[in-house]
Design a protein around this nucleic acid. Structure first.
Lengths: 195, 195
DNA sequence: CCTACCGATCGGTAGG
DNA sequence: CCTACCGATCGGTAGG
């Protein structure tokens, strides 16, 4: 409902939970771990949340929204498929880097949602993959991309991009845009070879 | 000690644990879940294992060995760096696909090892990445690969490859070799583009 | 390999 | 937001 509120207790809880979930995983993080981060007693959290899983759900649902909000508009832009794909990669990497912990939780801990939320996330992920698959298929059709298997290519692209939280540390020497540029080049051109 | 023993209870435990860990994660799998899979009582497992974490360690240490055993020899072969890298990718994918559950556990659950095992795994992973980084750096030096950043390229390659357990299902319509071929092409050539 | 148990910790609640 | 508590489940052990 409220759009990215600023300093409420609830937001502090989401922030702390994102950090802990992303580092240790959802199951290895207790409600008391989160509370301790905010100098609260374990039970006190429940004045603001209704369950641990609801916190996970809120984190995941929000980043999912962020991904669609960033990438969706690009899919409707009029430009060559190759450029469109590059712009989508940029947008996607932007969300990952700017919401690093939340994105890591999304990729890592969606399994721990109970039904029907789990299936809902899977459906969202499929739709999102579809946006990329369409761009890639368009690129193949127009001859811009030389591929056989749009589905496999799509999975590879997103797998590579979603691995960012596993290695990226914001030490400030590379901006999200620079990372996105390098990754887009790697993905579009490959490692390159002479043959 | 014993080399990949066949049907001992211990091996059955490792097999069941690999399947469960890979599906639900280490923390979400109880010792009783594993026991149930073998029609045993929870406590009975401890006649064969000494702790839940030891089971995780055994799974992870073994696949780590498999990766080195498959890839290491290739790094010493005399051939152009591009061919060598392709062969390494093939070998790596072979291990992932043939030990799908164990590999998934390795990639997913190493965080849950306690020290010093956790650091040991990280050190092994660094050494292993180094094998690929060297091949890529060689390829850059010889002009076979057109890259700026060997480290980033290495991480991308392994990230893409290690994502396989996330989507690959052995429905029999693609062999490990076919997968490896397609992935190697994708990684070496990229999606391809006309510009 | 089972039965029966241990202390610790879990997510969550009541009552203030 | 705290204190104090709940039942359930956890990894692991004793004793046979």
């Amino acid at each position: 409902m409220s759009a990215t509120a600023p300093h409420t207790r609830k937001e502090q809880i989401y922030r702390a939970a994102s950090a802990l979930f992303s580092e240790r995983g959802y199951r290895a993080t207790s409600v008391r771990d989160i509370a301790r981060e905010l100098d609260l007693q374990g039970g006190s959290l429940y004045a603001h949340i209704s369950s641990k899983e609801d916190v996970l759900w809120e984190i995941i649902a929000r980043v999912a929204d962020s991904f669609f909000a960033a990438v969706r508009p690009i899919t409707e832009a009029e430009m060559p498929a190759g450029d469109r794909l590059r712009a989508m990669i940029h947008a996607h990497v932007g969300v990952v880097v700017n919401e690093l912990a939340r994105a890591a939780v999304f990729f890592q801990d969606w399994r721990h949602l109970s039904e029907p939320r789990r299936s809902e996330v899977l459906a969202l992920r499929d739709r999102y993959e579809g946006l990329f698959r369409t761009a890639i298929a368009d690129g193949i059709a127009s001859g811009e991309l030389a591929q056989r298997d749009a589905r496999l290519a799509t999975i590879m692209v997103l797998t590579a991009l979603n691995g960012i939280p596993g290695w990226f540390r914001a030490d400030g020497d590379r901006t999200a845009d620079e990372i996105a540029d390098e990754l887009a080049d790697l993905i579009l051109d490959g490692l390159g070879r002479s043959s």
